[in-house]
């Protein structure tokens, strides 16, 4: 009997201590991991959207609480005013899972500056072609007040042939970002000015 008790106690103790150590490591290093993810995963998309080295814009980041999720927003200032935003959005229902997108918004002219793909797991040669400039370029100059849609639904975006699902997910993600912008614009600008005051 005591043998069994000892086994249970020792194994539970080991497992408990291990979980404690892991939790500590995970929480302690979370900010550092977030920074690295920003630099290596979001960095390339931001670089293309803002046309600036990623390191310059990575610190211009606010995280907005949108009810059920937290949405990272990057910004760029032109003098005193915030000129450009990059809003992260999730394109739900891609062929190989959700897409992570970054939508560029020009606040001065109220137009989109582009759509960038942060990460995806679409089929190479079909859905993965959302990364190609030819497809992404279609977002440039679209108004921010109006929803985007595929040409088949009377919209402006030509779907990638053979990858309608992926194109639809990208469009859906964009609309989510635009809706988020409409509902939270004040909040975004407020958080940005708070951050700017601090630094």
């Amino acid at each position: 009997m005591s043998e069994i008790v000892r086994m249970v106690v020792v194994l539970s103790l080991i497992a408990g201590i291990c979980s404690a150590v892991l939790t500590m490591a995970n929480q302690g290093l979370a900010p550092q991991i977030e920074k690295q993810t920003d630099l290596y995963v979001r960095g390339p998309a931001l670089e293309r959207l803002f046309d600036k080295p990623a390191r310059e814009v990575l610190n211009n980041k606010v995280i907005i609480d949108a009810g059920d999720s937290e949405i990272p927003v990057f910004y760029l200032k032109d003098g005193e005013n915030v000129s450009t935003l990059a809003i992260e959005a999730t394109g739900k229902g891609g062929y190989g899972g959700d897409l992570t997108l970054m939508i560029g918004i020009d606040l001065v002219s109220s137009r989109q500056t582009g759509m960038e793909v942060v990460s995806h797991s679409e089929t190479p040669g079909l859905g993965a072609r959302i990364e190609e400039p030819g497809f992404r370029r279609q977002w440039q100059g679209l108004p921010t007040e109006q929803e985007v849609a595929l040409t088949g639904n009377g919209g402006q975006i030509d779907a990638i042939s053979g990858a309608t699902t992926t194109s639809r997910a990208a469009v859906g993600g964009t609309n989510e970002a635009l809706l988020f912008l409409q509902n939270h614009k004040e909040e975004i600008l407020k958080s940005i000015s708070e951050i700017e005051e601090k630094s």
Partner: peptide
């Protein structure tokens, strides 16, 4: 975790 944090 360490690798993700320092050698991404």
């Amino acid at each position: 975790i360490l690798m993700k944090a320092y050698f991404f």
